[in-house]
Measured scan of single mutants.
Amino acid sequence: AQEYRALYDYTAQNPDELDLSAGDILEVILEGEDGWWTVERNGQRGFVPGSYLEKL
């Protein structure tokens, strides 16, 4: 798994998404072809927009 940093804040719109704060460090589990990536942070897993992340 790769570590990424959130570039922007994101507020989850659905229960299966995660909130992001700019600067958060996340582990990317799966890069979805639809642009939604499965990530894990502090034991929580959910979808976030891949375009909001940069690889560390």
Rank of each mutant, 00 (worst) to 15 (best):
G43M: 06
D9W: 02
E17K: 02
D19L: 01
S21E: 14
D34P: 03
Q44P: 02
S21R: 14
W37E: 02
G23F: 01
E17P: 00
E33N: 13
L56A: 13
Q44I: 12
D16N: 15
L20W: 00
Q2C: 12
L20Q: 00
E40Y: 07
V48W: 00
D16C: 12
Y52N: 08
L18I: 10
W36I: 14
E3I: 15
W37P: 04
Y8C: 11
V48H: 00
Y10E: 00
L30D: 14
Y8K: 15
G32M: 06
V28A: 07
L56V: 14
G35N: 08
P15T: 10
I29W: 07
Y4W: 09
E17C: 07
Q2H: 07
V48L: 02
E3F: 06
L7D: 03
E27V: 14
A12S: 08
I29G: 04
L30T: 15
L18K: 01
D16P: 03
A22I: 06
S51P: 08
L56S: 11
F47R: 15
I25V: 13
A6L: 03
G35Y: 06
E31R: 12
V28N: 04
A1R: 15
G32W: 05
R41W: 03
D34C: 12
E27T: 13
L7K: 13
A12G: 10
L30S: 15
R45G: 03
D34R: 06
T38M: 12
F47E: 08
A12K: 09
A6V: 12
R41I: 06
Y52D: 02
L20Y: 02
E27S: 13
P49W: 04
D24C: 04
K55F: 04
Y52G: 05
A22G: 05
P15Q: 10
Q13V: 10
Q13T: 12
E3P: 09
G35M: 04
G23Y: 01
P49Y: 03
E17W: 01
Q13Y: 04
S21V: 14
E33A: 10
G32D: 10
P49A: 02
T38F: 09
P49F: 02
N14T: 13
N42L: 09
E33C: 07
N14C: 10
Q13I: 06
I29S: 06
I25K: 12
